[in-house]
């Protein structure tokens, strides 16, 4: 009896420590990445770095202003194309999709979400870049936009489904048509959650590199328009990190830090929006 008790206690302690250690590893990895990026890149983190063009090899100074602007422009196109499709598709799934159609669309979205991002890049290369004859901001933005769709569809659907169906019933009982009820009651009730999902999806694709390799490619100068290749932070990191020049490698670290900081900020902002929603509902 005593032996079994001791054994039970030991197993308990072991299992608890195992869960604790794994949780700690998760946090430690994030902190390690952040610290490492900051340590290697912090002395490049200046206003100049964020606003200037890259300097030629061997020259001091210079920055990644074009890549910062480029990432912004790529995300803008991605948002303009991916969010409307994802949002409306998500609303359809949550409120109007029948069993069979809903299953098919949901499954397709999950598969699309699982398509390796480099395949997405090749796809856009074939349908946009080849016909146009050259890389472009538009193609890069579209590649990211296609990646947004499944994420936004699923998060929109989840947040809309979380709204109690009794609210829609209340609207329908007042003689409101179904789509009007969804648009005026369900969507506003889910708005913060839906917005959070959209922000998180943007943060997720902001760091994608592979889809940009064949689409927006890169540019050493300021963007020459939507139809021309453009620089972006992930591409800049990739090219600088594999370059043989010491200061370029360090700039890659700094760019990585900026990108990660951007994603973290969006994440934190999204979670603040979401927690505010809950306090309003309780209030």
């Amino acid at each position: 009896m005593q032996y079994r008790n001791a054994r039970r206690k030991l197993v308990n302690v072991l299992m608890l420590s195992a869960t604790g250690i794994c949780a700690l590893v998760t946090v430690a990895i994030l902190i390690a990445i952040l610290a490492y990026l900051a340590w290697n890149g912090w002395h490049y983190l200046t206003w100049t770095f964020l606003t200037q063009l890259p300097a030629p090899v061997g020259q001091a100074g210079g920055g990644m202003g074009n890549a910062v602007v480029g990432t912004g422009k790529l995300l803008l196109i991605a948002a303009l194309t991916g969010i409307p499709v994802g949002l409306i598709g998500g609303v359809y799934l949550a409120e109007f999709g029948g069993k069979a159609v809903g299953f098919a669309v949901r499954y397709a979205a999950d598969l699309l979400n699982g398509v390796p991002s480099i395949v997405m890049g090749i796809f856009i290369y074939t349908v946009v870049v080849l016909p146009m004859g050259h890389f472009s901001t538009l193609a890069g933005g579209l590649a990211l936009g296609v990646m947004l769709i499944p994420i936004v569809v699923r998060s929109t659907e989840d947040f809309m489904r979380a709204v109690p169906s009794t609210l829609l019933e209340g609207a329908l009982a007042l003689g409101v048509s179904r789509w009007k009820g969804v648009a005026t009651v369900i969507l506003p009730a889910a708005a913060r959650g839906v917005a959070t999902g959209i922000l998180l999806s943007l943060a997720r694709v902001a760091g994608e590199t592979a889809p940009l390799l064949f689409t927006s490619f890169n540019n050493q100068y300021w963007s020459q328009g939507w139809m021309q290749p453009i620089a972006s932070l992930p591409m800049m990191i990739y090219l600088y990190a594999i370059s043989p020049y010491k200061n370029w490698q360090q700039e890659a670290w700094a760019a990585g830090f900026i990108l990660l900081a951007l994603v973290l900020l969006v994440n934190i902002g999204a979670h603040i929006i979401l927690s505010r929603r809950q306090s309003v509902q309780r209030g």
């Binding site: 009794t166 007042l174 309003v280």
Partner: peptide, 19 residues
Amino acid sequence: LVALRRRVGMVFQRPNPFP
């Protein structure tokens, strides 16, 4: 249907005010 439901209103089992 819209006209009918405006003439015949409904109150549900659990209060369901809109947010």
